[in-house]
Simulated scan of single mutants.
Amino acid sequence: MAVRLRRRAKDPEGRMPVLDHLRELRRRLIIVVVLIALGAVLGWYLYPHTLEFLRHPYCEVPAKYRFTSAIGGKCDLYYHGVLDGFTTRLKVSVISGAVFTGPLWLYQIWAFITPGLRRNERRYTIMFIVTSTLLFAGGVALAYVVLSKGLRFLLSSAGSGTQAQLTVSDYISFVVLLLVVFGAAFEVPLLVALANLAGVLSARVLKKSQRLAIFLIFVFAAVATPSTDPFTMCAMAIPMVVLFEAAVLFAVVHDRRKARRQAAERAEEHLDDDVASQVDPLPVRLESRGDAAARADSPVGSAWSDST
């Protein structure tokens, strides 16, 4: 006796049991880890170029604030432990892999979220991937621009007669943390827009909490930035405020369209009493099961059914 294994029908509204939801999350996380691991292989071979790119802001700091090598006066970074060089290269390779494969694992995050959205809202997949990638790249680019000024402020705060001799591990950790924090902070307005699309945050709530949100953005910028200088804090907070206001504007437009669509649907459901209904003018006799069986048993009825 053959047993058929039927695949569970997919809910059009994206609802699933808790265990299936956890299995889906596990599957997406495994895919993300594999993608980042493959990108880390490429980052391992591109490490010399990545290190030179990350070291450039440090080299722009005036030589009187940083320790220069006796050979050629280069702005070299140092390490002391035997494994420090290997761990630094491994760390930079993994982070580079996450950056290189960013659009791919961002799609996995979006694919995990979209079952809870309507079908007409799932068309924002490409828009989400492109927007999130551009926002993260914009945050990283802004952090890289202000990095040299932030380093100059921090290294010169020790006073004259002092120089910084930075290790490659500490410097890379500081720079990567700053770049990631800026890039992730620029994703916050996109998350607000997604929450509005999912019905979690309405435009009315966002408009009421605008002042509090702006205050919290400046607090977050002061706490999240690795450097304590006000220039870096304002460089993060001001663009975040602008992006948050854009997200609020998006929520207002989306909620207005949603309200008009729901009003039109309710108007179609409640018909006016003065409007005549669509009725067939010629009534059709409904036959019972006995009449249908009798007609099928008779030769005339069977011939009539075969012809029809």
Results as ranks from 00 to 15, higher is better:
Phe215His: 01
Ala267Val: 15
Leu286Glu: 11
Met236Gly: 05
Ala263Gly: 14
Val219Glu: 03
Val223Trp: 14
Ala292Gln: 11
Val253His: 14
Ile217Lys: 06
Ala264Ser: 04
Arg285Gln: 09
Ala251Ser: 15
Phe218Ala: 03
Pro239Tyr: 04
Glu245Ser: 01
Phe220Pro: 11
Ala246Glu: 04
Gln262Asn: 05
Gly301Val: 03
Arg261Lys: 11
Glu269Tyr: 06
Glu287Phe: 09
Ala294Ile: 14
Thr232Asp: 01
Leu271Ala: 13
Glu268Trp: 15
Arg256Gly: 09
Phe244His: 07
Val241Phe: 00
Val275Gln: 09
Glu265Ser: 08
Leu212Tyr: 02
Asp273Asn: 09
Glu245Pro: 00
His254Lys: 08
His270Asn: 10
Arg256Tyr: 07
Pro283Ala: 06
Met240Lys: 00
Val241Tyr: 01
Lys258Glu: 09
Ser209Glu: 05
Pro299His: 02
Gly290Ala: 12
Lys258Leu: 15
Val300Ile: 08
Val284Tyr: 10
Ala246Gly: 12
Val242Ile: 15
Pro239Asp: 03
Phe220Gly: 07
Ala259Met: 10
Asp255Tyr: 01
Gly301Leu: 04
His270Arg: 09
Ala222Asn: 08
Arg285Met: 12
Pro299Met: 01
His254Trp: 12
Ala267Tyr: 11
Leu206Asn: 00
Glu268Asn: 09
Asp273Leu: 10
Ala224Ser: 08
Val275Ala: 12
Pro230His: 00
Ala237Tyr: 00
Val284Glu: 15
Gly290Leu: 12
Ser298Met: 14
Pro239Asn: 04
Leu212Trp: 10
Pro281Asp: 08
Arg285Pro: 06
Ile214Ser: 00
Glu268Thr: 08
Pro283Cys: 06
Asp291Val: 12
Ala264Asp: 14
Lys207Ala: 08
Ala263Asn: 12
Ala263Leu: 15
Met240Ala: 01
Val275Lys: 10
Thr228Val: 07
Asp280Lys: 13
Ala251Cys: 05
Glu265Lys: 12
Asp297Cys: 13
Arg289Val: 14
Phe250Ala: 13
Leu282Pro: 00
Glu265Tyr: 12
Glu268Ile: 13
Arg266Lys: 10
Arg260Ala: 13
Thr228Gln: 14
Gln262Lys: 13
Leu249Gln: 06
Phe244Ala: 03
Ala251Glu: 06
Gln262Glu: 10
Ala276Glu: 12
Phe231Ser: 14
Val253Gly: 03
Arg295Val: 00
Cys234Met: 11
Asp297Gln: 15
Ala259Asp: 08
Ala222Leu: 06
Asp273Gly: 11
Ser227Asn: 06
Arg260Thr: 12
Met240Ser: 00
Glu245Ala: 00
Pro239Ser: 02
Asp280Val: 04
Asp274Phe: 07
